[in-house]
Simulated scan of single mutants.
Amino acid sequence: MYSGRVRPGGAPGVHELARLVVMKGVVGPLATNVYVLRDRFSGDELLIDAGAAPDRVLALAGDGPLRYLVTTHRHPDHWGALAAVAAAAPDAVTVAHEADAPAIPVPTALAVSGDGDRLTFGDVSVELIHLAGHTPGGLAVLYDDPTGPPHLWTGDSLFPGGVGKTHSAADFTSLLDDVEAKLFDRLPDETWVYPGHGDDTTLGAERPHLAAWRARGW
């Protein structure tokens, strides 16, 4: 049974959906979550945040093939293994938001500019959502499962207990506004949330606390 709780050095978590298999590992000194999304029928994969330990990241991906390497934002703990993983999977397309791509020292083959861009691997399609505030070019990845609740990878923009760290009141307001409008106002409580660090959560578990987060401020 998948719980969303994976510990550094421990076995990966495996979340079995009808079409998609989600594998979660934890890498690096900052315990960054790395996710591999696999179309269970074609085997095609999308990887989110090759943060560190390229051998462990590639082991999580297995035989692939890796089609996309998505970096949710510019901070090094989320791309530390990207160069090595990209070299091992030369046909995979590197993806980041255009506002963060220049700060990622691995060429971004697909620099997205806003909301609604889609990536398809096998017969699985995911949507990219721009969340600005933790960094200017933060991305979330949404899989709107046709057989169940949505699944959402939020990088460092949303965690259990609050939004990600910001460095100014304006950045905090931007991030919380985006998270409310683009995630909570759009998606149901059952939406499963996979953050960039730590345990998973759901939008329903976090929704009652939105007003307290805003009052607490950055």
Rank of each mutant, 00 (worst) to 15 (best):
G137N: 07
P195S: 10
H167S: 14
Y2N: 09
S125L: 04
D156F: 07
A83I: 09
E16Y: 11
L58A: 12
V21Y: 01
R74A: 10
L176F: 07
D115H: 13
H97Y: 06
L82I: 09
R207Q: 06
A99L: 15
L142A: 05
S157A: 15
P149E: 14
A53R: 07
A50N: 04
D178K: 05
F159G: 02
V57T: 01
H73I: 06
G198F: 08
V141I: 12
L58K: 07
T173E: 11
A212K: 12
A132I: 03
W192T: 13
L69H: 00
L183N: 04
H130E: 10
A92D: 01
L183T: 02
A53H: 09
A88C: 13
D117L: 13
L187K: 08
V6D: 00
D145N: 14
W213G: 03
A99H: 12
R214W: 02
G161N: 13
E206S: 03
E206I: 00
I129P: 00
G80S: 07
T94E: 11
L152R: 01
P188T: 09
V124A: 00
S113K: 11
D189L: 11
A18I: 06
H209I: 04
L60W: 04
D55P: 09
G161F: 10
G122A: 04
H130A: 12
S174M: 12
G4A: 05
G114N: 01
F121N: 02
A88L: 11
Y68Q: 10
W79K: 07
G28N: 07
T120Q: 12
V193Y: 07
R7E: 15
G80N: 04
A101E: 00
G217P: 03
A140S: 14
D199E: 14
